[in-house]
Design a protein around this nucleic acid. Sequence first.
DNA 1: GTCTATAGGTAGATAGAC
DNA 2: GTCTATCTACCTATAGAC
Lengths: 205, 205
Amino acid sequence: MEIKEQSTESRILEAARQVFMQKGFAAARMQEIADVAGINKGLLHYYFRNKNKLFKAVFDEAFEQFALQLNGVFAADIPLFDKIEAFVNEYMDILLENPALPGFVINELNQKGGEFVKGLMSRKNKPNPLPLVGQIQMEVEAGRIRPVNPLHLVLNMLSMCAFPFIARPMFQGIVQVDDATYLKLMENRKREVTSFILNAIRLNQ
Amino acid sequence: MEIKEQSTESRILEAARQVFMQKGFAAARMQEIADVAGINKGLLHYYFRNKNKLFKAVFDEAFEQFALQLNGVFAADIPLFDKIEAFVNEYMDILLENPALPGFVINELNQKGGEFVKGLMSRKNKPNPLPLVGQIQMEVEAGRIRPVNPLHLVLNMLSMCAFPFIARPMFQGIVQVDDATYLKLMENRKREVTSFILNAIRLNQ
DNA sequence: GTCTATAGGTAGATAGAC
DNA sequence: GTCTATCTACCTATAGAC
């Protein structure tokens, strides 16, 4: 679990990312972060004054990454059906590479709440689903898809992609599958969810 | 926020439920639980030996409630389309009354992991989606709905219902709506999700 | 910049009076 | 059963040597 990388600062950040994501802010220990980084605990305070600031550095970066990846797909300039397929594929690929990210972000937002959330949302880079919402709206008005509520459709897409990762321990506990089987299921899920969505909004000929 | 109820034990449990659900195990403080319960901190240890046991009492009850409610809908003996509608309506009603429940359960499972999950899943009362999965399978084989993967369909239903509650702070941060508007959206969502699912699996005439 | 040692504060748990 | 007072352990943060 130890980290070998160039600068001390990036080793700390990488270690903090691991520990904070797994344990959450409250349960994370500075000692464990230092151990994972392979350095002394005092150094954490030398680079980042305190636990809060270290957490904020990790969280902000994770949130920004999350937002950028999401917005990349939201804003693509392609037809709706293609965009839905691209969204499901790319978003689930992101989640397969970084399965703990959404749960981490969502959970800390839940627990910190209030000011913390407001601070985040006044940043320049935050998730912006409006391009996709607008595009859906246009297709509905043009009568090219079923008359769905665009906001709920976007929520549906996000839900079906992200939830299985957030609820992974629960899911694997209920339907007893090993990790390899779970990953295969998520791979199949891309096609399954895409066709599910398209069937739901496609007009009958 | 203080609690007025009959027995001291149930007041403690109610207070612990509130605090644990909001803060999570690690960030929850015995002092705060005592304050909310309107009793002294020492009493917590008199009734429940330590923080872990108190948490387990709260969590087990929440998990059991969660499983029972879910299974009630999974196992109902009604036609599939009716069951889907009933599932979405009832499950979202449950969530509207207890919005923090799934996030709490899922998050603690994530962080505790391993033995904790195994212990839970060897209990008698755990979520059991098999009746619904089997029912979907039959409809597919009979050619009465589109050939969907039953497991993924159930996952889709759970995802679309639960995710908006788990990710509520994120959601309300992105589309800036107050609490009343959010609740209205969730009310509308029942119909929206039901028709979405039915359209996705209904055969074209 | 990196380490060791330790201060300072807090939270869980216990002891004992009532 | 309920309270007050206190112990003990741990964790963040700082001080200071190298």
